[in-house]
């Protein structure tokens, strides 16, 4: 190592993978992964989120899972928690939808309305 830039590059690269260990205000993507979620295909969704976050080198985003969210009929369910914002719940998520959620919502802060639980319930009565 001959420069501070090299040190900084290692720092950035590694920090993204381990900063979930510090108490900080991150954007959290939580995938419902109880039996119902797994049966409905939550795992590929979770993996896709992890891939996308890693590929785009997003810092301050953690992807994790939780148990049954309650709406088993709408699984796979993904919840996005951003600091100081209301939680957003996406339903019937499949891996193809992940890219848009990341680009529009997580990177640009624009909620993808037509994937949300509110939109789904309104249009599927």
């Amino acid at each position: 190592m001959k420069s501070i830039q090299e040190l900084e590059a290692i720092r950035q690269r590694t920090l993204n993978t381990i900063n979930m260990r510090k108490d900080n205000q991150n954007t959290r993507v939580v995938v419902g992964m109880a039996t119902c979620g797994i049966a409905a295909g939550a795992r590929p969704v979770l993996l896709k989120f992890m891939d996308e976050v890693a590929n785009r080198n997003l810092s301050g985003v953690t992807v994790s899972q939780t148990g049954c969210i309650g709406f088993c009929r709408l699984e796979p369910i993904v919840e996005v928690y951003s600091p100081d914002k209301e939680k957003v719940t996406y339903v019937k998520v499949n891996p193809d939808m992940v890219g848009r959620i990341i680009t529009d919502h997580i990177v640009n802060g624009k909620v993808v309305e037509e994937y949300t639980i509110g939109y789904y319930e309104k249009n599927n009565k």
């Binding site: 040190l7 290692i10 720092r11 590694t14 920090l15 381990i18 900063n19 260990r21």
Partner: peptide
């Protein structure tokens, strides 16, 4: 918090930044 056998994790939490600062 960190894996002590992985220097990258130390660097991630500002490791060796102080050394860089004093030297430069």
């Amino acid at each position: 918090v960190i894996d002590p056998e992985n220097i990258d994790e130390y660097i991630a939490f500002d490791g060796y930044k102080a050394l860089a600062k004093v030297l430069t």
